[in-house]
Design a protein around this nucleic acid. Structure first.
Ligand code: MN
Ligand code: MN
Ligand code: MN
Ligand code: MN
Lengths: 222, 222
DNA sequence: ATTATTTTTTAGACTCATCTAAATTTATTT
DNA sequence: AAATAAATTTAGATGAGTCTAAAAAATAAT
């Protein structure tokens, strides 16, 4: 059975929109995510259900089958491995890799991915701190919290981003923040819940609560 | 103007079928090459002509415009760079790279190709000895002759293949022949125009005329 | 110069992925 | 419990890319 590029993108979208609860993904949320009309989504859901990649009940939302989930995870694996390649080998910046990986993730060759994985040293995290599932589809999730949930002045490690837009990533770069960096919360303004942090020897940086909610961290020594 | 993957494959096919003489490529030859029906080819030729990528006169065959040619050469450049990547960095063998490169050549990012080119050390030849056009589209052709045109017992350098099928490439590998190898013609059988050659310290290998016609060589010290 | 053959184009149909507009179902308010 | 609003599906249409069958043009053979 062959799966088209379009079908792959639907499968991936369903995976991303799936909650850990067993509640089905709604047609509208897929419609928004994929920027297709809801009626187009319905058409595709019927097709994916025929192929046993999803479980679909009219009006009731949709869930991936095991088969569908495997496909989704494999695409994500490919996407993130290519992102590592683009960053580590071709020196792209972390805000440039996603769009190109969106294309590369659809290249069909299991052997290619196996070799790419080895070539890159079997990385476990992509340039944005997201875990790369292994060949069997296992994610190695490191638990993190958004910076704005941290209410104490602590030493912090920056381990991921919730927002993946180019402008957000570029902004973080501009204030000297990269994945793995340690920084210190110097002050929390309890009026607007904004932060002042100090990255290495840089000056203090002001971070709005909105920004802080998209910065995923781990508290040092914990 | 965007060019679809399908259109790219037609443009590439037209480029490959173009003779150095200014004779148009026929509908049937494209039909054979692409394994599409002639009627489908005609449809696409109309579309490509509308986009000014080809010059097309009904019943008269087709020629690439300068614009079309540029696109064709760029696709070939991408294809061959990816082949080098697959072979040099991911250790694929020369018979495995083509099919994957057929997919990779359609990835759209000029920046990606620029960086890939640098990463690979700006190679000028692909794994099959074919020239890689530079950023400006210039090919650096090295002149070669098919082995079966060489009628004297000489020292030879193997510099390319005319046939790119997996089975042919695998066979060459099995007799110890790889691009750049030097070998000596030990005998030419004038009954069937077959060859006996000696690769390095290996035993003698018998090469049929048919095989020899697909082996591109350069005579050593000439 | 006709006739026959081959090549190419046209006509009409199909699948995939999408859309708009209308109908239907589900959820929310009164 | 109706009425209203929101979400979802159905119906019908479109463009890209393909196909088969038939018509037309170009070539080759008599
Ligand atoms: Mn990404
Ligand atoms: Mn990522
Ligand atoms: Mn190739
Ligand atoms: Mn090649």
């Amino acid at each position: 059975m062959t799966i088209s590029l379009t079908e792959e993108n639907y499968i991936k979208a369903i995976f991303y929109k799936s909650n850990s609860n067993n509640i089905g993904v709604s047609t509208n949320s897929l419609s928004n995510h994929l920027k297709n009309k809801a009626s187009s989504v319905t058409d595709m859901l019927k097709k994916l259900a025929d192929k046993k990649l999803i479980r679909y009940k009219k009006y009731k939302g949709v869930l991936l089958t095991l088969k569908g989930e495997k496909i989704a995870i494999n695409i994500i694996r490919k996407h993130r491995l290519w992102e590592v390649f683009l960053m580590e080998k071709l020196n792209f910046s972390w805000d440039q890799v996603h769009d190109i990986a969106e294309q590369l993730e659809h290249i069909k060759s299991e052997e290619l991915i196996k070799r790419l994985d080895s070539f890159l040293g079997k990385p476990t995290l992509d340039p944005h701190g997201d875990p790369i599932p292994d060949e069997k589809g296992k994610f190695n999730e490191t638990k993190s919290i958004p910076l704005n949930e941290c209410k104490i002045l602590k030493e912090i490690i920056f381990i991921g981003v919730k927002n993946h837009t180019i402008s957000f990533l570029k902004y973080l770069t501009s204030i000297g923040l990269g994945i793995g960096d340690k920084f210190k919360i110097e002050a929390i303004n309890d009026f607007d819940n904004s932060y002042q942090i100090k990255v290495k020897k840089n000056n203090l940086v002001f971070i709005s609560n909105d920004l802080a909610s998209n910065i995923l961290i781990k508290i040092k020594n914990e």
